[in-house]
Structures are given as structure tokens and as C-alpha cells.
Design a protein around this nucleic acid. Structure first.
Lengths: 103, 103
DNA sequence: CTATAATGCAATCAAAAGGTTGCTTATGCA
DNA sequence: TGCATAAGCAACCTTTTGATTGCATTATAG
């Protein structure tokens, strides 16, 4: 399942923080999303690459800088997947409830 | 962020499959959720433990069996987190749109 | 034109993850 | 009582992950 890769990418505090930054701030360079995370630039860069591989973000070089762009499609797929699980779960509970009511 | 642990737990095809099984089927034993995953029982058990640690599932021993119960709260937190990201993202796009319209 | 800032690339390293095998324990059923 | 089934525990192994350091490259600001 390709979704597992998306969840995995979100499964780290550093990467989660990066995604949150990208949601808040318009136009982040790699430097910007990597600052103040308590790890080195290269460490952060590896995390960023995980997000790129999961296609949660895209990189766009512009001169000396590389801009990091959020690609929200994958996030939406992940959200929808969980929502579907919840829907199935709820309908099962409903069925159970009706079964109990019937006696 | 505790949510990272939830995402991480979902970030594996085997565990994702387990969760899907638990949504579909009522009352699964450890054996049931571990069958047919292409790995050994002990391997599956380790995956299950990851889900337990992330509090996505609970274990309930009953006699010789141990039942695996889905605890949907964490899944809902994860879904809500993404939904919130999307909301922020959308409102930023709206703001940008208005800015552009104003000239 | 040169210094500096943004980035890339590679080697290295410890720790965690994913998986296995082997053995033990305990429960339920015939 | 005896045997099959469900599960636990521990050791072990390989690969991946998270992070580092060091050095090279490239582009912009003065």
C-alpha cells in the first residue's frame, strides 16, 4: 500500500513539524524549513527527502535557493483513508446495536 | 508530538492491513489478525505490539486467547490533525486569492 | 571579483526496525 | 490424562533510519 509510505513519512516529529511549517508559511526554502529543529542541516535534509519520496512535498530550485512546496493531495488521501476506516467502524457498531436491540 | 507515533504505527503495510481487518471483523484473536500476512506469528506479534504502543489497539486476554480490540480514538486524532492542516492550507490559499484580486 | 550563503554529495556510525528460529507456558477439548 | 492450539519470551541477524562530519559546488551580494 502506497499510503503506508505517506503515514510513515508523517511518523516522525521532525517531519511533522516541517509539514506544519509548510502549511503556515508561504514559500519556504530548504534552509527555512530546516532551521531550529535541533539537528544539522544535512540531518534535516534527509527528513525532507523522506517527505519528497512520499510525494508530500515538492522541491523547486530557483537560483541559489530550493523552494519546498507542499503537495496536499497525499495528505488528503491519508485523511480520507482514515475517514473511511471510521465509517466502516461506525456502520459495524450500528449493525451490532441493531442486532442487540432486536434481541 | 504523540501523533507522530500514531502515524508511524500506520506507516507499514502489515500494520495497515491489521487495522483494516480489525475494522471489518468483530472480535479478532491475535492469531486471526496475524494470519496470512506472509510473515511468522512472532513477526506479526511485533507489529501488533507497535499498534498497542501507539494505543491504536488494545489487547484483552480471555482464557487461552487474546482478543485484539480497535481503539478508534487515536485514528480520529490523526484524521483530525490532517483535516486541520488542510483547513489552514485552504485558508492561506483563500487569503492569497483575495490578495491577488485586490491587486 | 571575491566572500558568503544555500545546497549537494559521500562516508561513517549507533540505534531501531523487521524478521527469523527455538523453546516454554498455559488453556481447552477429546 | 494427554494432545493440540494460542500465545509468550529470548536470542539473533540484517537492513533501515536518524544523525553526524567533512568537503565540493554554485549563485548572489557587495
Amino acid at each position: 500500500m502506497a499510503l503506508a509510505e505517506v503515514f510513515r513519512a508523517l511518523g516522525d516529529p521532525v517531519r511533522l513539524e516541517m509539514v506544519q511549517r509548510l502549511v503556515k508559511e508561504e514559500s519556504c526554502t530548504i534552509s527555512a524549513v530546516s532551521e531550529g529543529l535541533g539537528i544539522t542541516r544535512q540531518g534535516a535534509r534527509k527528513h525532507l527527502q523522506v517527505l519528497v519520496s512520499a510525494r508530500i512535498v515538492q522541491l523547486e530550485p530557483k537560483g541559489r535557493d530550493v523552494y519546498v512546496l507542499l503537495a496536499p493531495e497525499r495528505l488528503d488521501e491519508a485523511r480520507a483513508f482514515i475517514a473511511e476506516l471510521e465509517a466502516k467502524w461506525d456502520s459495524r457498531l450500528d449493525a451490532l446495536k441493531k442486532f442487540v436491540e432486536k434481541g
